[in-house]
Amino acid sequence: MGFKLLSKLLVYLTASIMAIASPLAFSVDSSGEYPTVSEIPVGEVRLYQIADGVWSHIATQSFDGAVYPSNGLIVRDGDELLLIDTAWGAKNTAALLAEIEKQIGLPVTRAVSTHFHDDRVGGVDVLRAAGVATYASPSTRRLAEVEGNEIPTHSLEGLSSSGDAVRFGPVELFYPGAAHSTDNLIVYVPSASVLYGGCAIYELSRTSAGNVADADLAEWPTSIERIQQHYPEAQFVIPGHGLPGGLDLLKHTTNVVKAHTNRSVVE
């Protein structure tokens, strides 16, 4: 069995187990497998329904001669939608809004960016022009300005110390501490036991640490421990890039980060 097929099978099995364990909360999309990078042309966006009122959005972007996937989250909030992270750029984010209108038909009224990198804030200006209120932590807003990236308009308070959590509509926002970046936030959907790890969490097929220019490698494993301790009931975990899975993604990420750190020390 090929690795790609095995990865998709694991996603399907995880979703099936969740649907059985929580039949009222989960209505997993039966329309197909989780979209992969090879299936999404740059400039297009796919939506994948995880649970009743919960979707991931998947886009792709060219970077350094390669094409990478990027995940975000959409959560229903009454007759409105909360968006977590842009679709990595203005063109993708405009396509995301169009796809949401086509498939869901509810307005996106608020959006949260989970850290300051372009795959999370690139497209904020498109959201703002569409009347979406954009939010991020003060740290993310400051770092985005320093980096020359787009800056969300509103500040999220109460997320300055490791372990801080605040309720934001249908989700809980959690600051686990520094990891992929010093400002990275985690998003949890309690009604569906869905954990969105953003770039602080890796997919299972990833074996290298990737972009760690703004990471705190020493603190990252401790931050992941905080996530595990705060959300032990999480059933569906979405990484910032690639295929979702279960809580095993947290341990896998820790292993990859520690291996990278150990290699760096040896070198």
Rank of each mutant, 00 (worst) to 15 (best):
S22P: 06
Y48L: 05
I104A: 11
S62K: 11
G169P: 07
T86C: 15
L204E: 09
S193E: 11
I186W: 01
L10A: 06
C199M: 00
I100N: 01
A136M: 07
I227D: 02
A87H: 00
D183I: 01
F168D: 01
L250S: 01
A165H: 13
V54N: 01
P232E: 11
P152V: 12
M18L: 04
H117S: 00
H117C: 00
G43M: 10
L249I: 08
V42G: 09
G72S: 04
Y135V: 01
D64I: 06
Q103E: 11
I224A: 15
L217F: 04
R128I: 12
V108L: 08
E145P: 05
H260R: 08
T254K: 06
V42I: 05
K91S: 13
D125E: 09
M1R: 04
D216K: 09
D125F: 04
V146L: 09
V112A: 06
P232A: 09
K91D: 14
A15L: 06
F116W: 15
G240C: 00
I17A: 04
R128N: 04
V121E: 00
V256K: 14
T153R: 12
R120V: 02
T93S: 14
K258F: 13
N255G: 14
N184I: 02
D164G: 12
L73A: 07
S27T: 08
H180R: 01
S16I: 04
L73Y: 01
T14D: 11
V108G: 02
E225V: 11
F63P: 04
V75G: 01
G245W: 03
G65E: 05
L5N: 04
T60Y: 04
D164S: 14
S162E: 13
G246S: 09
H260L: 05
G210P: 11
S38H: 06
G131M: 12
Y231G: 01
V212A: 08
S223K: 03
A51H: 15
L173A: 04
I104R: 00
P69F: 10
N71G: 09
D216R: 10
E203R: 01
A200Y: 03
L106A: 13
K91H: 12
G245N: 10
G72E: 01
D77A: 05
S139P: 07
I151H: 03
Q103P: 03
A51M: 04
P221T: 13
G123E: 02
T253I: 03
R167H: 04
V45F: 03
R142H: 12
I50C: 01
P239E: 02
V146S: 08
Q228D: 06
I227P: 01
V11F: 08
S38Q: 12
R76L: 05
I17S: 04
T207N: 15
S56I: 04
P221W: 11
P35I: 14
L73T: 03
V54A: 10
I74C: 03
L217H: 05
P176T: 01
A59H: 06
P138V: 06
T93V: 00
G43T: 13
P107G: 14
L81C: 04
L47K: 02
I227G: 02
A130K: 13
R110A: 14
Y135S: 12
R46V: 09
Q103S: 15
L96T: 12
Q49D: 11
L217C: 06
S27F: 11
P152H: 05
E150K: 04
I227E: 01
L185E: 01
Y12N: 14
I17V: 04
P35V: 11
G198T: 03
A136K: 03
S264I: 15
Q229E: 08
P107C: 03
E39I: 10
Y12F: 06
L10S: 07
T222Y: 06
L96N: 00
A66V: 05
P23Y: 07
V146T: 12
P23F: 06
F26N: 15
A192N: 12
G2L: 13
N211Q: 06
W88V: 00
V265T: 14
D214Y: 06
G169H: 09
H117T: 00
A209F: 12
P23R: 07
V171I: 06
D79I: 10
D125P: 03
T261C: 11
I40M: 08
L159A: 09
G2F: 12
L10P: 07
C199Q: 00
F63I: 07
Y231T: 04
S56G: 06
E203A: 14
G198W: 03
V265D: 12
D118T: 08
G242R: 03
H180K: 00
I74S: 03
A21T: 05
I58V: 06
F3C: 04
V28E: 07
E147I: 08
A133S: 06
P176Q: 02
G32S: 13
L195W: 00
R128Y: 07
A133W: 10
I201S: 03
P170V: 15
H260F: 15
I186K: 00
Y175E: 02
I186T: 07
G242V: 03
H180W: 01
L204N: 15
V266E: 11
T109H: 15
F26T: 07
T134P: 04
A59R: 03
L127C: 00
R226N: 15
T207I: 15
E225H: 04
A209K: 12
L217S: 07
G89Y: 04
S191Q: 07
Y196V: 10
P244A: 14
Y48K: 05
D248H: 06
V187H: 01
A178F: 07
A87W: 00
G245P: 01
R76D: 10
L81F: 03
I201H: 02
V126A: 06
A200E: 02
A66I: 07
I20T: 06
I17Q: 04
A259E: 09
L159K: 02
A192D: 06
E147M: 13
H115W: 00
S56E: 07
V189E: 09
T14Q: 06
H57Q: 11
N71A: 09
D183E: 06
D125L: 08
N71W: 01
D52V: 07
T109V: 13
S31C: 13
V256C: 11
L97T: 05
V126L: 09
T261M: 09
G122R: 09
Q49I: 10
H117P: 00
V54M: 12
I40Q: 07
L97D: 03
I238G: 01
Y196W: 06
L250E: 02
V28Y: 15
E44T: 05
A144D: 04
E203T: 04
S70T: 07
A19C: 06
H241D: 01
V124C: 07
I186D: 00
E80N: 14
S27E: 06
G177H: 02
Q235E: 13
Q235G: 08
L96M: 06
Y231Q: 01
L9V: 07
V257Y: 02
N71R: 02
V108A: 14
V126R: 09
P69I: 04
G2K: 12
R206G: 11
S193F: 09
G131P: 03
H241Y: 02
S155H: 07
I74W: 01
T86W: 01
L185Y: 02
E99M: 06
T222Q: 14
S181E: 01
N255Q: 10
T254N: 05
L106D: 12
Y202S: 10
Y12Q: 08
S113N: 15
S22R: 07
V166W: 11
L156D: 02
Q103C: 10
M18H: 06
G242K: 02
S161F: 15
T134I: 15
K91C: 14
L185I: 05
F26V: 11
V42Y: 05
N211C: 03
F63S: 09
T261V: 15
F63G: 09
S162K: 14
D216M: 11
R110F: 03
I227Q: 02
Q61E: 07
L156C: 02
D77M: 06
F26E: 04
A94F: 09
D164C: 04
S56D: 14
V187L: 14
A87D: 00
H230Y: 07
D183V: 01
A165Y: 13
V265K: 07
N92I: 04
Q61L: 07
G197Y: 02
A144I: 09
S7A: 09
L13D: 03
R226D: 03
P170E: 14
R76C: 03
A90V: 13
P221S: 11
E80W: 12
L47N: 01
D85Y: 00
E150S: 06
V266Y: 06
E147G: 10
G89N: 09
N71E: 00
V256E: 15
P35A: 08
N92K: 13
R142I: 13
V108E: 02
V67E: 09
V257A: 10
A218R: 13
T114F: 01
Y196G: 03
E225A: 08
P35S: 11
G163I: 11
V112R: 02
K4V: 11
E145Q: 07
V112L: 08
Y202N: 08
L9K: 06
S223H: 02
